[in-house]
């Protein structure tokens, strides 16, 4: 656990980092960034809290098994989305321009960027975001857990 100043700063910054991370994930198909970048930003938030509060406190809030599960679920969602398009070809974008979820047609010319477009890409971004936030956070958690063992 670090000093009160660090913890207050972490408390203040944490929600903003998470929101920015989820923003990057959700807007992956229209703005720069995407699942990997957003997931990394979210994991940075986790790392911030973890460094500020220390492993003993944080392990009550965040479970390693949940993060591992997030990793697995993200990967599975990604590959299953790819498999669904198999009747045409692997990774086929079956949702684009279909009118279903994320299936709106993009108007021609300059436009403000509609979120509800691009077919399977946002789904894959979400899957990658979940996977990366789980994977990178679990690395941080294991680092801290191992460090504690060394101390003892």
């Amino acid at each position: 656990m670090m000093s009160k100043i660090v913890r207050t700063q972490a408390n203040f910054l944490y929600p903003f980092i998470l929101i920015f991370g989820f923003y990057v994930v959700a807007h992956g198909h229209i703005t720069p960034g995407g699942g990997f970048q957003g997931g990394a930003v979210i994991a940075t938030g986790v790392a911030l809290v973890a460094v500020a509060y220390g492993y003993d406190t944080i392990k009550k809030w965040i479970k390693k098994t949940h993060l591992t599960a997030a990793e697995g679920i993200g990967l599975l969602c990604f590959i299953i989305t790819a498999f669904i398009g198999l009747s045409t070809s692997f990774f086929y974008n079956f949702l684009a321009n279909s009118g279903l979820i994320f299936g709106n047609r993009v108007p021609y010319g300059i436009n403000p960027g509609y979120l509800n477009t691009a077919g399977t890409l946002p789904i894959m971004n979400l899957a990658v975001g979940i996977e990366v936030l789980g994977g990178l956070s679990v690395i941080i958690m294991y680092m801290m857990a191992y460090g504690r063992e060394v101390k003892q």
């Binding site: 990394a40 930003v41 994991a43 940075t44 790392a47 911030l48 990178l136 690395i139 941080i140 680092m143």
Partner: peptide, 8 residues
């Protein structure tokens, strides 16, 4: 962000 935290 992350690697600095891990290094620290």
């Amino acid at each position: 962000g992350l690697t600095t935290a891990i290094f620290v």
